[in-house]
Design a binder for these strands. Sequence first.
DNA 1: ATTCCAACCAATGTCCACATTGGTTGGAAT
DNA 2: ATTCCAACCAATGTGGACATTGGTTGGAAT
Lengths: 229, 229
Amino acid sequence: MSSIILQRRHPMATKIVEFLSEGEIKNNRLPPERELARSLGVTRAGLRAGLEHLEAEGVLWRHVGKGTFFGRRPEEISAGLLDLRKKISPQNLLEVRMMFEPQIVALAAMRASGAELEELEAYAARARTAETVTEYENWDDKFHRCLVAMSKNALLEKVVDFVDGMRNAQVWGTLKAHCASPARRAVYCDQHDSIVKALMARQPAEAKRAMEVHLEEIQRDLLRAPDAG
Amino acid sequence: MSSIILQRRHPMATKIVEFLSEGEIKNNRLPPERELARSLGVTRAGLRAGLEHLEAEGVLWRHVGKGTFFGRRPEEISAGLLDLRKKISPQNLLEVRMMFEPQIVALAAMRASGAELEELEAYAARARTAETVTEYENWDDKFHRCLVAMSKNALLEKVVDFVDGMRNAQVWGTLKAHCASPARRAVYCDQHDSIVKALMARQPAEAKRAMEVHLEEIQRDLLRAPDAG
DNA sequence: ATTCCAACCAATGTCCACATTGGTTGGAAT
DNA sequence: ATTCCAACCAATGTGGACATTGGTTGGAAT
């Protein structure tokens, strides 16, 4: 977080903003520096002074070969995501999941269709009868994915997808090791059933609480692991 | 959500899984069909029968020109995101923000440094003295971005970035229209100050409540708008 | 000394031909 | 009839040549 707080706006910066607010800008992209300088009737160096000011202000961002754009610089996904996964602790992940997963089931209790509830129940049953860890994971994944679909919130689905994609190998492997025990999986399956039961009874508060219990169980397993593993 | 629930696993599918679990697979990518068929000593048609089974099971996904990969098919971001923005209602967006923004300030109250609190206060002050809507938006954005940084949760920052990116033009424009009124902006600024005050007093519950009040205010404005706009 | 201009640099986008890959078809072998 | 094989198809990845663009430099003009 850069804490650049500027006092006054550069004259050229004001001129740029005024000129651009008149014409339509496509895809947040400004014209190339050479062209924009010609349009404004100023020298390129002068224009760049103004652009630098606007960039420091966070109004726009520039990159060689790409161009100049309004808004804040989008993070590079290639190296960015890899670095990010290392920065995310299991605690971080659980904090986030605790924020919206209970709410998801509360919404699901109010909005799910009968067919969806039956599908969810089928996934829970499949997870219970799974013999291998990978098979359990397969049905558990489908269970949670079906759950968020029942919330009828397209954005929420994407957010869950995003968070799931952020699970780093460390966290994933740790949880997987715990699921290796059939007894442990049985506990999770019981909690799945509690959630399904509350959803079928259309009890949002109860369903929410059941999911909180489930996540707290997972949290205990994850935080217990680093000592053992 | 496809509800394909299969009964038994294809013999060839089992053979494929067994063979691949022995060698190391790079980047979740399976060898090309031709090569894999040769390695397994089976015909390509037979191999494909097994792969189709595994694909239906959700174990892997395939695409012409790309290859065959483990895991679930990643959604295409190009057309997917554009379609998604149309599907997201203002209600969807607010539901999601209500889920974690209050929690963010609760975490911030416990974890923020003194320097960060000062920076936050500065942004709130800048937003209050803003004369234009765009200037207000600039500082308001920095305010909320500083807030989530204070939660010390890298994943949470990325989630907020993701959600912010999903704001469609309709929602954005509607809120902007309401901010056009200086009186309206003053209300928001008062609420910002309440949040800052609670954070400086290190009162998580109070800060959380202040953010809830702020979001409820925004929600009222957004839901009131469609009739007027 | 400062400003302006043109050229140059390195990073990126764009376009193209070519190799790769999953999907499909038709005949040969059994 | 079924299975196998080879070729072909369309979509995608890959790599290179070339244009575009922000960043930089050095001399000319004032």
